[in-house]
Amino acid sequence: MINKIGSNTIRFIFLAIFQVAILNNIDLGGYLSPFLYILFIILLPFETPKWLLLVSAFFIGITVDIFSNTIGLHAFSSVFIAYARPSILQSFAPHEGYSTGSTPLTNSYGLNWFIRYSALMTIIHSLIFFYIEAFSFEFFFSTLWKAILSSVFTLILIILSRLLTVKRQ
């Protein structure tokens, strides 16, 4: 348990810095803005207390917000996917259920399972983020386009980062 708190804290710090220092400076045509930091929320252990899920999602969201001058937007969308996470996990659960003490990593329930789960989390996050940012449906299709492109890019980064860490293990 202590070990898990430690590793997740390190992941929090690392992902926040990576997001703020590198990914925030990537601007490909104003459309692609990857949000790799949500990998932190995706990778929290199954048994994380629900309140801690929300609070930690809020904190990583607000941290990214402060550095990218989007106060509240990342926090809002992060808290939302943290709230949706238990239901999403349940809908993707294998027949025998999740084994106790495991984390939603690629190697626990297969790459295919991991991609479906994180794809849903990413697309929900991107849609909420970009529609709240636009704050209207006036630019409905350009916002949708932006959200889809960004979530695809985010998902690619998530899978790449998982594959890299799995090999290292």
Binding site: L54, V55, F58, T70, G72, L73, A75
Partner: peptide, 14 residues
């Protein structure tokens, strides 16, 4: 808690 945190976020944003 979810509702509370979302309200806080929205208030911050506004």
């Amino acid at each position: 808690l979810f509702v509370f945190l979302e309200i806080v976020s929205i208030l911050l944003a506004v």
